[in-house]
Design a protein around this nucleic acid. Structure first.
Lengths: 204, 204
DNA sequence: TAGATTGTTAATCGATTAACAATC
DNA sequence: TAGATTGTTAATCGATTAACAATC
């Protein structure tokens, strides 16, 4: 599926997708790379190059068929393939992510959650069970998730990461402000909300 | 404060900061760029170049004084200057962010929150008042925040963004899956959690 | 056909890495 | 001093942009 698209192009695909989906179908059967570029404040050649990776062909003079382009982007991003994910750390952020509806658009399904706090075990959040962290292995065997969301405190992040990798998880989205070490066969991405806001502030 | 550091370097500074803070003070009075690079899986020249922006000088043969480097990074990132921020959208994510303790490390203080849901008005989350969105102007005048966190549904994001800009906010961290349009004097950054996880999945 | 827009090849730009002199 | 490490200058690499031929 993923060929040799640069990661930086890959990151823009959801932006195009969101934009295209936000357009009303009536007036926008066709859309040109120039129009997309202008709306999103970027260069039109870059838009065309990015879109070319999805192998959705545009037509000279008219542009791209909006619905086809959406379908191609969704296809390329794997939105139609269901992907199981687990979540570790049912604090405020963890609960918010369990309740968040946006994952379904990308075919992602959080199947189960884990926490070390006995008070949280047995809870259900948005229909997902909160299990003791010891059951992680069992959950991975049961649901075969490749993805995990890590929403534990910084102090626990590395050890939970190790458990996830040992259990066979292949991709980790880490919200703890720690750079995780993991086998290089595992893809780890980091979202540091506080740091992002601080960077934003220093750009002002 | 912010000179001509490339934004991509700026984004790495919090990573260094987190790593340096995670080291115990005992064994690590000095640390070399090579050691940092190895720990974080990056090139050592890049580390030195990045650190040079903070104007903390290292010493040949010994490296950098860890505490000095931390101080320089914190200084460069403005962690010691208190920065007020407001939050709009007190849903699951908004509440999680209001309760999140990580902002103080960067000197960021969320002073007040806003929502359009009457049921939420008057609530307090982590000691912060939830006010009607109509009071945004008043709040900005009262607290003079430059930053805002946008945690409203996609459908409301652009109109709330317009209100924030009208009120005088200069930087917006947007969690809604929408590309916001704003005057170019306003810095807008986007965190799309679902898209991030989908990208991670397609890298596997 | 003429004109607009795509897709691609070449040029530019910026970031990373390599080489190396300075220095503690 | 010798050796390790910094900081900087030059080379490389990759991404964006510009130019343009293809085409509907």
């Amino acid at each position: 599926m993923t060929r040799d698209i640069p990661e930086i192009s890959l990151q823009r695909l959801p932006v195009y997708l969101n934009y295209l989906k936000s357009l009303s179908g009536e007036d926008n059967k066709y859309i040109s790379s120039g129009a997309i570029a202008q709306a999103l404040g970027m260069g039109e050649v870059l838009v065309r190059k990015d879109l070319a990776y999805t192998s959705s062909a545009g037509r000279p003079k008219v542009g791209y068929v909006r619905t086809e382009l959406i379908a191609a982007l969704e296809d390329y991003l794997g939105c139609n393939q269901r992907k199981a994910a687990v979540l570790v750390g049912v604090g405020g952020l963890g609960r918010a992510l369990l309740s968040y509806g946006g994952f379904v658009n990308y075919g992602i399904d959080i199947v189960e959650a884990y926490d070390s706090d006995p008070a949280k075990i047995g809870m259900e959040v948005a229909g997902k069970k909160v299990c003791p962290i010891e059951e992680l292995e069992r959950g991975v065997q049961e649901y075969k998730p490749h993805l995990a969301i890590l929403a534990v405190p910084a102090s626990a992040a590395q050890s939970v990461c190790d458990m996830l990798v040992a259990a066979g998880i292949k991709g980790i989205l880490n919200f703890a402000p720690v750079q995780l070490k993991a086998d290089e066969s595992v893809v780890v991405r980091h979202i540091d909300v506080a740091a992002s806001l601080a960077i934003l502030a220093s750009l002002l």
